Amino acid sequence: MVFQAPVDTYQGKVREVTVGKEGSQVVVGGETTLPFYFFEGEMPRRPVIAMEIYDAAPNNWPSAVVEPFKDVLNDPIAWAKKCQDEYGADMICLRLVSTDPNGENRDPANAAETVKAILGAISIPLCVYGSGNAEKDGEVLKKVAEVAEGNRVILGPSQEDNYKSITAAAIGYKHNVSGLSPIDVNMAKQLNILMTQLGLDAGRLVMDPSGAALGYGLEYVYSITERLRLAALQQNDGMTQMPTLCDFGREVWKAKEAKTEDEPSWGDPEKRGILWEFMTAASMLIAGGDILIMRHPEAVKLTKKFIDELMS
């Protein structure tokens, strides 16, 4: 008797979101099946990797991840170009950490000038994340949206406390938005509802259900990401059919297994950190990640090879 594997069919489809300026755009989404289930439906586009950069040199990164960028950490424009030209990033994710009111507290105009300069230096799409301070991010991203008009960037994170100002800026200057929710299916869906009710086209939204590292909550984030994708496909739920952005690079390199350098019995610290980030990336790809925000170029290289193998 010949075994025939069961095959499911789905009513829903993940929306397609276009990122970047005309001529160098990237489209994510469009799946009609679970990740890499080519025997059940279509996955027309490969996931993309956005390498993260900061607008101010980080002071708490382990040496393993500082080394590849040591010559550009004080120059976000050169940093972005290096990620594009040397490390093969599909996108850049700029974190405007210098705008944090609890840090340097740079003003929105300063941040906008940095964004404008980076857009002039790279040809790949840009994602712009604020410092994580909801109130300040609303002000900063409004100014960023203005100077980035025509480049269709992803603005974020849009959260419960600032989604109105970020969404309005995205609508006014025709950008995309990344909605950040605290690891909860219903809260992710509700944020999407609120942003679309303000007039944002659902085709300009990506979901960020929160990031976690291997061993530090990854299984929970994996579950929520997978459940969002199942709701999109099985239930044809229009408010969960946005592509998924997975922001985990910074979480990985905060984990003790990735950053600890004085435990010889744990093996080479650089290799350990790279593999910690790659395993996290592999997990999020299987869960349904369309955009991965990553940090170490060697982890990016491994992940790209993994995507190649899965797509073939």
Rank of each mutant, 00 (worst) to 15 (best):
S210E: 15
I166V: 12
A212N: 13
V115E: 01
K142R: 15
L194W: 15
Q159W: 02
E104D: 11
A170R: 03
A188I: 04
I183D: 05
A202M: 11
V185K: 02
V185T: 00
K142V: 07
G203W: 06
D201C: 03
M187T: 12
S210G: 01
I154M: 07
S223D: 14
L191W: 07
L198D: 06
G156W: 04
P108N: 09
N133R: 12
G215Y: 14
V115N: 05
V177M: 11
M207E: 07
G203D: 11
Q241C: 10
V140W: 01
R152S: 09
N176Y: 05
S131H: 11
L180E: 11
S223H: 12
A145T: 01
M187V: 05
L228R: 00
G211V: 08
N162P: 01
S210M: 12
A232G: 02
G179E: 12
G172W: 03
N133Y: 08
N186E: 15
S158R: 05
A170P: 03
I118H: 02
I118F: 04
A188E: 10
A112V: 06
G172T: 07
P209I: 08
G211C: 04
E113Q: 15
A148M: 00
D208V: 03
A213V: 06
K136L: 08
Y220L: 14
A213K: 06
N133I: 09
V185A: 03
K143Y: 13
A188L: 05
P157M: 10
V206M: 08
G203V: 07
Q190M: 13
R227F: 02
N102V: 02
C127M: 12
A148C: 00
K116M: 07
G211L: 10
D237V: 06
Q234A: 13
S131G: 12
E149P: 00
I193F: 09
T114V: 15
N105G: 04
L230I: 11
D201K: 11
L228Y: 00
G172H: 11
N192D: 10
